[in-house]
Write a protein that binds this DNA or RNA. Structure first.
Lengths: 154, 154
DNA sequence: ATTAAATAGTACTATAATGGTACAGAATAA
DNA sequence: TTATTCTGTACCATTATAGTACTATTTAAT
């Protein structure tokens, strides 16, 4: 099912809660109770998001976590890669070492094409998009939005 | 890493071998030796591809497997869903039962949007594309290819 | 200074998923 | 009838995931 890990799913829930909340700084505890996710799990996720520079942390009393930048500038791609590492569908998209068929494969480069396409799709969606109500039958639905595929290969 | 299972990876290797081969019908044994994948594993994959109507099987002596249609008509999406079930990044994209936050979530529909985008990307690549040498600096690279996003919502 | 409130880091464990294997059954051609 | 080849089910070992626990470190407030 082309799965995303549960933690990544949680991360989006946490981040959208943080983006919607007025408070600038939230503690792991506050986030845990608000989202219903167990505290240790929340901490784990927050830490990863800090490492990926999606969040900024402040230690000590009155400390907590805050978005490192505007929700419009946090892409879904960055969240996913923070939790799961580089976005790639197949092993050989990351490193082709250990692939017996390496040179004779020929599929490899095509996979990387697909990868880039998907990566682009994920880059184009931000946290701000996630929290805004979906324009199900409004804007997007009846509008011809075009994506330049060339932009994938900058 | 937004991972695709190893079996799915094998499936693409198997299918591209079959598409490239001249023989109309290949036995599981032949495919196994040609690709270097263990026979039982190959059988398992072939069976799933038959169920998904990507391949056609013939039983008995002189039996074997063959593509059910031209390589141009076999999409990567169909291969992935054959091996991994419906293409969806999050659980709730498949069924929202068991999601505590269900109605209050608001993220759900946005995920489904992303899902559809990715699904579309995978629909647009066929087995024929996979086996043809990548036009790295030729066609695609310098061409403005546009994808109508509306087509995602038919 | 001392204490309380937080995050940071490491390590561990149980559960689930995946990959791979084995075996008995069914269909077909020779 | 026999050899060949797919079909289906069930099983096991390995790995990955999710979740937990514990200790160290940093900072604000008293």
């Amino acid at each position: 099912m082309l799965r995303l890990s549960k933690l990544t799913d949680y991360a989006t829930v946490i981040l959208s809660f943080m983006a919607k909340d007025d408070a600038q700084v939230l503690t792991a505890m506050e986030i845990a109770t608000a989202t219903g996710i167990a505290l240790p799990t929340v901490s784990k996720i927050l830490k990863l998001l800090v490492n990926a520079k999606v969040l900024i942390s402040t230690r000590g009393a009155k400390g907590g976590y805050a978005l490192s930048r505007a929700a419009e500038k946090i892409t879904v791609a960055s969240v996913i890669s923070a939790l799961e590492g580089p976005i790639a569908l197949t092993e050989c998209s990351i490193s082709q070492l250990g692939c017996e068929q390496a040179s004779g494969c020929g599929i490899r480069s095509n996979w990387s094409l697909i990868n880039q396409t998907i990566h682009h799709a994920l880059e184009s969606v931000t946290l701000a998009d996630m929290i805004k109500p979906v324009p199900v039958k409004d804007v997007v639905w009846n509008q011809e939005v075009m994506i330049p595929v060339t932009s994938l290969y900058r």
